[in-house]
Design a protein around this nucleic acid. Structure first.
Lengths: 248, 248
DNA sequence: TTCGATTTGTTCGTATGTATT
DNA sequence: TAATACATACGAACAAATCGA
């Protein structure tokens, strides 16, 4: 109806995509927050002036992307970074025998720095922007397995302090979401191998130059906006990175 | 309507799942082969005695898993291992600058061996089964980047010879599919870091003990049946393993 | 080139089943 | 129990792409 058709431009978007965009915009604008119940399919159908089937079609992809969660008899909710979601969706280290262990982070350093050109570029913020830099030693089943270096624009986490960071419950992504309204919904990782950095050999209990897995991660929120950079150095003696293709 | 409802047993499977299973069975049994046109939605609806909507629902997941491909105006086809599919779906090495290069394999050795207990176990074949073992040096943009060791039960590729292997067009998975009716539809990989094996240092142009990325892959066909093991040692100086989560 | 038949893509509406409150 | 919400299934209509006559 409001889909104005201009001659020559075959206005390719189907209705359900437009509605999907509208809903995603509502999520990005925090009209609906993680954990919230969004309007029922019937209500949305009324509001957008389309059939229930079209609403379902619009929600389908958001549900399969784990941005929304449908619960029969209750409603449709905005997904949250519950421990299990973060653990089994964004955490890919498993034991060589297939076992999963919850990570336990120990803070090594917490600083505010000026971002390098490359970091600012990848985060799509101005050059020299202030970034919060956090380094952790992470243990699995008690053993030190990897070291994390996290970079996030300070502007995205106003008021964050070392104390708040350390005393958080649950994961970092849950902290971003609960306290700063930032929902990480997608990550992109590049993996390579390299010698363990000199200063990390000791905390990881490795000899100099031992090969470690290097994981470079960018975390994105809605509309593919990058919000966090993270580099991990992993001792892969007992744990490996698991990638299942396809499907999730 | 024909879904006979027995009191107490809440006939757990929805209709579209049953139909999905039927179709998957047809694929596994090679009733429809890769590249084939499967019956139209209308025809399938008639054949199964359900509505077109239910057929679409049944096909949806197979399409999103890239097992089937829909083409408007033409029909629905069984997916094939076209070069681009294998390259962009099962091949995850990209340049550090994001560039993609087609891999060019050079045969190092082709043998038939007795599988180790572990290999036979992971391939779900009898202990001591004969396996074809292939080793390749793979170049990207002309440079030797990684080495492959492939293991596949000989029973799965009857008549395969070194000549056939070397003279194949396109990828190995396309060979499995075109000549041996084996469609790889899913792979599972475990990544770790380690020193380059002594015998591979030279062909890869690396110094002894240089860290390389080790990729352990299991390839599956329909019904999660494992068909191939593969281990790769990758020089990650210029190329990295890319993993996008989520979505494909 | 045009036209019609076929096939998938989109949208609508309705009915009924099942889970939750 | 009743109301509500999602899940499944059916059927119909038209749009868009394809292909051959």
């Amino acid at each position: 109806m409001s889909t104005t058709l201009i001659a020559g431009t075959p206005h390719s978007h189907p209705l359900y995509e437009e509605i999907q965009d509208e809903i995603t915009r509502g999520l990005a604008d925090r009209k609906w927050k993680p954990g919230d119940l969004i309007p029922s399919e019937t209500e949305l159908a009324k509001r957008f002036g389309v059939s229930k089937g079209t609403i379902r079609r619009a929600l389908d992809e958001l549900v399969s992307d784990r941005i929304l969660v449908r619960r029969q008899g209750r409603g449709t909710f905005v997904a949250t970074h519950s421990p299990d979601r973060t653990l089994y969706h964004f955490f890919h280290l498993i034991g060589r025998d297939g076992t999963k262990e919850p990570p336990a982070a120990e803070l090594l350093s917490y600083r505010v720095i000026r971002g390098s050109d490359e970091a600012c570029d990848r985060l799509e913020v101005e050059t020299d922007s202030k970034l919060v830099s956090v380094r952790n030693l992470v243990r699995l089943a008690g053993d030190p397995i990897f070291i994390d270096e996290i970079l996030i624009p300070q502007a995205y986490v106003p008021g964050l302090t070392e104390a708040i960071y350390v005393n958080r419950e649950s994961t970092i992504y849950a902290l971003y979401q609960g306290r700063f309204d930032i929902s990480v919904i997608r990550i992109s990782e590049q993996l390579s191998a390299g010698p363990v950095p000199a200063e990390y050999a000791k905390p990881l209990g490795l000899r100099t130059n031992t090969p470690v897995l290097v994981i470079d991660r960018v975390a994105f929120t809605y509309h593919d906006k990058p919000v966090e950079l993270r580099r991990s150095w992993v001792n892969t003696e007992s744990y490996v990175y698991h990638s299942d293709l396809w499907k999730g």
